[in-house]
Design a protein around this nucleic acid. Sequence first.
RNA 1: GUCCCCAUCGUCUAGUCUGGUCCAGGACGGCGGCCUUUCACGCCGUUAACAGGGGUUCAAAUCCCCUUGGGGACGCCA
Length: 465
Amino acid sequence: MNKIVSRFAPSPTGYLHIGGARTALFSWLLARASGGEFRLRIEDTDRARSSQEATNAIIDSMKWLGLEHDGEIVFQSDNADRHNAVIDQLIETGHAYYCECSKEAVDAMREKAMKERRKPKYDGSCRESGLKSGVVRFKTPLEGTTAFKDMVKGPIAVENTELDDMILRRADGSPTYNLAVVVDDHDMGVNNVMRGDDHVNNTPRQILIYRAMGWDVPEFGHVPMILGPDKKKLSKRHGALSVMEYEKMGYLPEAVTNYLARLGWSHGDQELFTMDEMVELFSTDNLGNSPSVFDLTKFEWVNGQYMQRADPERLAGMLCDFLTREVGEEEAKSVSKSDFAKIAPLLQPRAKSIVDMLEQSRPFIVDAGFLPYDEAAVKKFLTDETKPLLEDIASRIEALDEYSEQTLEDLHRQFLEDKDIKFKVIAQPIRVAIVGATKSPGLFETMMVLGKTQTLARLKRAIEL
RNA sequence: GUCCCCAUCGUCUAGUCUGGUCCAGGACGGCGGCCUUUCACGCCGUUAACAGGGGUUCAAAUCCCCUUGGGGACGCCA
C-alpha cells in the first residue's frame, strides 16, 4: 500500500472543540502509525462565517495537543480557480450541467417530494436542457448504488436515486463544499479521510465526483460523535468546551489526547497511553462505531494519573504561568519556579489539575503572617492542651543544628517519648498550625518545603491564635 | 416523511468479523475494607450490562429477520 496521507480539515467558524480534536487525533494517529503524512487544511470557503481568529485558535489547539501537521497549511479559499476548472471539466465531460431553477422552485420540489413520502431532492428538470448559465449541478447517475467500505463502520451502500443532483458551483460562481473537498483532497494526495459521522451522507456524492474525474477514491472513516452527560450532542451548555478551555482549566495535553483516544478507540484493557504508544498501537480496526459520552470524572482521573507521572520541573513552570495569569506578573514574582519545583512533588498525588495544584500550594507560598486558618480546625486542634506541646516542639526545632527530614523525625520521636504520648495527639495540631488546615501532605516533608524559618513562624503564630 | 448509521455494567470499553474457553473481562464512579500523621495516592474486595422478540445451530453477546429506542443527513453551510 502507498504511504498514507491523511488530513484534518476544519472550517474556521469557531474554536476547535473536543469532538473535532478527537477526529484530528485519529487522523493524525492514522498517518503517524504508518509513517505517513498528516496535512491540515482550513475550509474557509464560507467567508461570512470564517474568521482569522478561529483559524488561529484551531492552529493553537492543534499545537497544544501535539498534533503536528506536515507541509504547509492549505487554505481552501486559495483554490477557487482550480475548483472552477474542475467544474468546467465536469461540464465538458457531461458529468455536470447548468440549472436555472430558482431556489423557491427547488424548495417547492423538495416539499412536494416530502409530502409524497419520498426523499426531498431536486428533480433534475434542467438535466438535459443544455442551458449555458446558472448554477452547475452534478449529473448523478440515475441507477445503481454507490458503496464504500468505511474504516470504522464497515460497508455502506446508498442507492444513487437517493442522491440528488448537488450543486457544484453557486450562482455567484463559487464552488461548493462537496466539490471543493474532493478536489483539494485529490490535489493534496490525501488517500485516507477521517471525519465526523455527520459526513457519511456526503461520502457517496463525493465518490461519484472522484469517479467522474477518473481519480482514485480514498479510504473513508467516519468516527461517531461525542455526547454530553445527557446523551445529547455535546454543546456549550454541558461543557463542550474548546480545547483551549481545557488548557485554561489546568489539564495536561497528553491527558486530553489519552482520554479522547479512549473515547472510541481501545487496545484491550489498556487505559493509559503515551502519544508514542498510541502511534505504535493505533489501528482503525479498534475504533468503535457507536457514539460515546464524555465523562468528566474519568477524564479527571486520567489527568490525575498524568499529574502524578509528570516531571516536577514542568509542573513548576506551569504553576508559575498559571499564577501569573491569575495575579499578574508583579505579584507572581514573589514565588519562584524553584519554589514550585519543591512543592509539586508533594502535591502530585493529590492534585487533579494544575489549577487544583496551584490552589493546594497556597499554604506553601504565602508568608506565615498571611496564612489563612480554617476556623473550625483551629478551634478543634489548637487548644489549651495542645498549644504548650506546640510551643515545646517549636523550641526544639529552633535548637536544631541540622534541619532535615531525618532530624525532624528524630526530634518528634524523642518528643513523643519524653511526653509519653502518641503521634496522633500532636499530628493534627501541628498540621493546622503550619498549613492552616486539616489536610496536607506529610508533616515532615511539608516542614522541609516550608523551611525552618517559615515552620517556626507558623508554629509561633498558631500558638498566639 | 425518506435515506444512512448505531445499540454490552451509570459511564468508557473488551469480547462480535473467525459462534463454544463469557452464568460476559477491564477501567472510571459508587459501596466496603486495608495502609496511615490528615487528605490524597496505592492496594484488596464488592456493585452493575449482552434493548425486546423471533429464527439458524448440538451451541449465539457473537450469524439472519423484525420491533423498539437513539443519532445523523436530506442547503446555492461546511
